[in-house]
């Protein structure tokens, strides 16, 4: 695996995404998702909203990095809040 040039932070990052997908899969088997219409302009499933959360998180961090720079705790907090909002009412 050395050719993949792993680092601890990237390994933790991908593990977190993998764990989230695993939790979503288990959750899906126990309680199948429903197409729901929230504040987003189209009907979405739980997986859709998770994907949008991840994509949004990436752009929130990029925007923060491109404009403010420095530490990204603020961006991470914003991304988590947005993800909660999206998963619950999106």
């Amino acid at each position: 695996m050395s050719w993949m040039a792993w680092t601890l932070p990237t390994a933790l990052f991908f593990s977190a995404i993998g764990l989230a997908l695993l939790i979503l899969t288990v959750f899906e088997l126990r309680s199948p998702t429903r197409l729901a219409k929230g504040f987003l302009p189209m009907q979405t499933t739980r997986g859709d909203r998770f994907f949008i959360s991840l994509l949004s998180a990436a752009f929130i961090h990029l925007l923060w990095l491109g404009t403010l720079g420095g530490a990204l705790w603020g961006a991470s907090l914003l991304a988590v809040l947005w993800a909660v909002l999206l998963m619950r009412w999106g």
Partner: peptide, 23 residues
């Protein structure tokens, strides 16, 4: 894609010499 992400946080001088540089 995961490999590219791994590369993107490092300064890679050669196959065995690389340094973590964050973002």
């Amino acid at each position: 894609l995961m490999t590219v992400v791994n590369y993107s946080v490092q300064d890679i001088l050669d196959f065995n010499t690389r340094f973590f540089v964050g973002l």
